[in-house]
């Protein structure tokens, strides 16, 4: 891992101005931002530990705890909200037995909410990993989760 971090830092010319993209790369490699790696990164970039932590906690896109194999994001922006997004979220929380913002013990799912993904015309929207699912209903949401679960068991 140490070598990988070095390579990522190197690819940005060891410039601390690129802290955010570096953190994004680390997160996509590790699925979250592990503590040891952040401390090591601070040393590599010669910046204070506290600064790395500050940036990592500022952006919602970063997670300091391990996340599930699938990351489900429910949009709660105004347009989605009036079209019933809270109901979709309720459904998912019940179905996945998860509170929004947490990851299941089995490590399969992370349920999160987001305040707008910029596709209001097709709301309510739910994102599965990078994929957009528009015009969600309770039954469509259940179907999407069902197929994901099946995929995991196979």
């Amino acid at each position: 891992m140490q070598e990988e971090i070095k390579a990522i830092v190197e690819s940005y010319g060891r410039d601390k101005a690129f802290l955010v993209p570096i953190l994004q790369d680390i997160q996509s490699r590790c699925n979250y931002l592990p503590r040891d790696i952040l401390l090591e990164l601070a040393e590599e970039l010669a910046i204070p530990h506290s600064l790395v932590f500050s940036v990592a906690t500022f952006y919602k896109a970063f997670s300091l705890t391990p996340r599930g194999k699938h990351i489900i994001n429910v949009c709660l922006g105004t347009a989605c909200h009036v079209r019933g997004a809270p109901l979709i979220l309720d459904t998912l929380e019940r179905n996945l037995k998860l509170k929004a913002g947490t990851t299941g013990a089995d490590g399969n799912f992370t349920l999160e909410t987001v305040n707008c993904v910029g596709a209001c015309a097709v709301g309510p929207i739910m994102l599965v990993d990078e994929e957009y699912h528009g015009q969600m209903t309770v039954s469509k949401a259940e179907k999407v989760i069902g197929s994901l679960k099946k995929g995991d068991h196979s």
């Binding site: 401390l39 204070p48 530990h49 506290s50 600064l51 790395v52 932590f53 500050s54 500022f58």
Partner: peptide, 19 residues
Amino acid sequence: ASEWSMVNRGISTKIATDF
């Protein structure tokens, strides 16, 4: 020493050390 920083965002912002 840069021991402190502002962590989190918005209403949950607080001063803290790393982790």
